[in-house]
């Protein structure tokens, strides 16, 4: 049974706020989904170790420098910048 507390704890980890009026619905939804997810624990079989699709290994890059992007490009999509930095201003 997923509780309000569970949902709030998970939300904190996820950096999400759940408004008081949303909490009941979200808890209900989470409980349904978790019940649904729980069906895998009825599976008799333990399953087998899964590594990665196509079992790939050793995809490496050589240690050679490629010029970085212009700072203007890097900062282009930022909401707020100053002195070549991404910026989060103090608000009150």
């Amino acid at each position: 049974m997923v509780t309000h507390e569970d949902v709030l704890a998970i939300a904190r980890l996820s950096k999400l706020y759940i408004a008081a009026e949303e909490l009941d619905d979200m808890t209900k939804a989470m409980d349904d989904i978790i019940k649904f997810a729980d069906t895998i624990n009825n599976a008799s079989e333990e399953g087998v170790e899964f590594d990665n699709i196509n079992n790939l290994s050793n995809a490496f890059r050589e240690d050679e420098v490629v010029p970085s992007y212009d700072r203007e490009e890097i900062l282009r999509n930022a909401n707020d910048i100053d002195e070549g930095h991404f910026l989060v201003r103090k608000r009150v």
Partner: peptide
Amino acid sequence: AYYKKAQNLRGSIVN
């Protein structure tokens, strides 16, 4: 209970 188990079941589906 969830992630690991699901990962293993993914293995059996692949097989």
